[in-house]
Design a protein around this nucleic acid. Structure first.
Lengths: 255, 255
DNA sequence: TCAAAAGTGTTGCTAGTACACCCATGT
DNA sequence: ACATGGGTGTACTAGCAACACTTTTGA
């Protein structure tokens, strides 16, 4: 791992001034934002500007004046423009692998100073390079409704299939894996999957969503019986696609 | 809530010096330590020295040099003397209700200075009275093996039935409720219940443990079939108690 | 011999799976 | 009419709950 790795990963979080008057130090929030498209479960990741192959989860810090759930909502709104996103805390990460050794920290300091010596005064550098614990949240969004907003130090944001994630900074790959596990555990029980779909959808689309999440096939007939048995969907009209087969029903999640 | 409430709650955490060189600021760990005795699920809580009716969960801070799981283990060992305790992180708590208002904080400051002006210099007071996020862990222990060790500012530690918990400082009652919920979700799936029992036990004891956790009765015959079907217990000898009935088998958890 | 409780066996229900079949749609 | 996939119904199976029964123990 090169020094640049951490420099860029940390820069990405810069939204304003770093100081402990405004934000809690050494504690961050990382968001695993799930979307669904083309029969694939996708995660929103950000390409960082400083380095060829630097990827990271969207994240941020906690204001002294806000709760942690509130902070996660704010961070999500900043990136996606969406309010009222389905959001769940799943775990805090603070393993010893997150503690940066002193030699390595010096490398990062140097990197930051070289990058922008005006912006990064000693105080900011101390703040940024300290050891961080992060609280992981996962979010479920209708990918079509999202209007991505790039952070100051991001080159772009990108939806990537969960099967094709690049190596990410720090332990972010582990965080995604934990989020995916939590999603699998909750999808059935809490009926949250519909947050990933548009307002109206066919039963086949629900099935394919489940198959994407669990990476496993479900027989259509039994799946339909199971979902309808939950009694949470209302049937709307039919969806005529022009295909030479029976038109499937459209459904909507009961509120 | 009186000012004393927070003063005492915070004092309880004092183990050494407070400073950000040694510990992460504004982040604590609270432990819900479960035990089982007399057919009741119990939680270890501490009676604080400064006030008539002040109760709190055992907790502590995170050293800069240790991971959070490691910190939780250390805190547990400090209180119970036990290594290798079954331990699981279940949630972080950082709601806006944990943010202390400035007027109230002044009351706490005054309380701390009056209590021990030598120990609590301005820096320590700032550190202590800042807003805290806490990470909740629950632990399962064999209550008979625990050797309780009182912290500096605790009057005593006490095992209390989960049904008879007193009002505790901050949101500690909520934290216990969340831990209890997590325990219920994991007890069956992860087969962790045996951590609450001694080495050898009868099937009836396992059943009564489950009944205590779920606050619900289980028929003995079906329960026995279910547990034996898991194939995780080995049958030892019989337990002769002198009662005029058939002697039950003793079991041990397979390792 | 009897009461108390341990342990086992049997039956019936329910939820999930596999399979088969009919229905609508556009060419 | 027919190919294509949507939708529904039926039989089978495994897991769970309710009930009945036998066994062991010490008075």
């Amino acid at each position: 791992m090169s020094a640049l790795y951490n420099v860029a990963c940390i820069n990405q979080r810069i939204m304003g001034k770093f100081n402990t008057e405004d934000y809690i130090a050494q504690l961050s929030i990382d968001c695993v934002i799930f979307g669904y498209k083309n029969k694939e479960l996708k995660v929103l990741i950000s390409k960082l500007s400083y380095g060829d192959n630097l990827w990271s989860l969207p994240g941020g810090y906690i204001l002294q004046t806000e709760g942690i759930d509130q902070a996660a909502s704010r961070i999500l709104k900043e990136r996606t423009g969406l309010d009222n996103i389905y959001l769940e805390q799943f775990r805090a990460f603070g393993g010893p692998d997150r503690i940066i050794g002193s030699e390595f920290r010096d490398l990062v300091r140097t990197g930051l100073r070289n990058f922008d010596s005006n912006r990064f005064d000693d105080e900011a550098i101390d703040w940024i390079t300290s050891r961080f614990v992060c609280i992981g949240y996962y979010a479920l969004v209708d990918l079509n409704k999202v209007e991505l907003r790039i952070g100051e130090f991001e080159e772009f944001l990108k939806w990537v299939s969960i099967a094709e994630l690049p190596n990410m900074t720090h332990d972010h790959n582990k965080i995604v894996a934990a989020a995916h596990k939590a999603l699998r555990q909750n999808l059935d029980e809490k009926l949250i999957g519909f947050n990933l779909l548009p307002e109206e959808f066919t039963m086949r689309e629900v099935k394919e969503l489940y198959e994407a999440v669990y990476d496993k096939e479900f027989p259509m007939n039994n799946f339909q019986k199971k979902i309808l048995g939950l009694n949470v969907l209302e049937r709307l009209g039919k969806k005529f696609t022009g295909a030479q087969n029976r038109a499937p029903y459209l459904y909507r999640f009961k509120k």
